[in-house]
Design a protein around this nucleic acid. Structure first.
Lengths: 168, 168
DNA sequence: GAATTAAGGTCAACCATATTGACTTAATTA
DNA sequence: TAATTAAGTCAATATGGTTGACCTTAATTC
């Protein structure tokens, strides 16, 4: 248990600062999902589709099980969303030659185009924020948010070079 | 439009770094809501109730309209959640004496206790992350996330002292 | 080779949280 | 007094999640 109200602590983690973090995360997430949501409407897709498209695009050949671990939802819930993306040819699947039970998911060209349309709004938002805050602030942002993520998932969010080492 | 692929730019905002930001926000938000969700289950409440309890606790006397602006949901959607919290005495309301159309919302003692139970798990998560990352990193975290939030809502997330000035 | 395990899929029922749209009431403001 | 504002309500609908039961196919283990 952390002492949240000490007025003696020389370098106190004040409750106010902690609540500010909570609120920043709430507002940032709210606004960061707003623009993609509007685009998704045009395609009759929802935020859940965006998440699938994003992580398949980011991890070409990812399997259903791996996707479920990232999204932390049930297979049945993923099934409707992924099924629709397969039917509408945003995503393609093929059996893993090394283990034919596994299906490797990839974005089609159509899927890549949508992924780019969706993600570029979010990347532009981050680009502005990074530019205005400066490189040092970006490093701090990373350090704090990595600390918020559960330790066992921290490796997922490392830069691509490091991620490749940890892969399978 | 930001140039995301320049290999000439001397200080490039690489796509990889921007995607890392996107993913950090996704994973951090996912994990940051996990613990409260488990507690809420015990009370037969959901994440929507948590948000209402949090922001009423944080802004005692807040009105329905102000709450809607923060949450960015519709009145009808708030109604069920808030109605239930009023029925079960987590939240109390009283008419604003200066404008009796407005209803000022506050947490009951029961509501305060639940707010604390829920929020303390999130504050502990932030306290650990802040402590491990260091004060400078925390400042960077703040600067970047404030830049992600829509400009018109940035004032909402300033420390209490500044917030009080901007109030009404 | 048979049994077990793993990956994926499916059906069904259900629930939480959100939406749009139309309408009402009460109180304040012009 | 008329218009506006704050809040509430009814109804229909959509989305994205859940639990639980069950099936097929392929790989692994005994």
């Amino acid at each position: 248990m952390v002492d949240l109200n000490s007025s003696i602590d020389p370098s106190p983690l004040r409750e106010e600062d902690l609540r500010q973090g909570i609120e920043l995360l709430f507002y940032a997430y709210r606004d960061f999902t707003g623009e993609p949501d509007a685009i998704l409407d045009k395609y009759d897709l929802g935020r859940a589709h965006h998440r699938v498209i994003y992580f398949v695009g980011r991890n070409p050949g990812i399997t259903v099980t791996e996707l479920l671990e990232i999204l932390r939802i049930t297979k049945q819930s993923l099934s409707r969303v992924l099924g629709h993306l397969l039917e509408t040819d945003f995503i393609s699947q093929r059996a893993d030659p090394a283990d034919r039970r596994r299906k490797q998911l990839t974005l089609s060209d159509k899927g890549k185009a949508l992924e780019h349309e969706l993600t570029s709004t979010q990347m532009e938002r981050f680009a502005r924020a990074y530019r205005e805050a400066g490189a040092e602030a970006v490093e701090g942002f990373r350090r704090v948010l990595i600390g918020i993520v559960e330790p066992e998932d921290r490796a997922r969010v490392r830069p691509a070079a490091i991620r490749a080492q940890n892969r399978r």
